[in-house]
């Protein structure tokens, strides 16, 4: 029985200078081939200009049960969102 190719998580930066975004995963024997496979699988429609690949087992995820403590505090920091501030119309676009 042959061993399965490891699983990789694929992140792609699109055309418009945005951050890399997780697009999915695939199998490949090593990182170099994971990048090539990602190019063939996930950029069939010109989706990207840069590819990151990460072994799936190298990703440490936040624990789902900590969702509350991790994310809820930021809900309270409403001032982080631009709509928190009322800017007079006369000031113009900001």
């Amino acid at each position: 029985m042959s061993s399965q190719w490891p699983l990789w998580e694929i992140f792609i930066r699109g055309q418009h200078g945005l951050n890399h975004r997780h697009v999915g995963s695939l199998h490949a024997p090593d990182a170099e081939m994971a990048i090539r496979n990602a190019r063939d699988v996930y950029t069939r429609r010109n989706e990207g200009v840069s590819i990151w690949v990460v072994p799936s087992n190298a990703i440490t995820a936040s624990s789902p049960s900590e969702k509350g403590p991790l994310f809820e505090p930021s809900n309270a920091k409403v001032y982080r969102h631009p709509t928190f501030f009322d800017i007079p119309e006369e000031v113009g676009h900001m």
Partner: peptide, 11 residues
């Protein structure tokens, strides 16, 4: 031989 290769060959 493997799905990833199928896709690459089609390209």
């Amino acid at each position: 031989p493997v799905l990833e290769e199928d896709i690459a060959l089609a390209n």
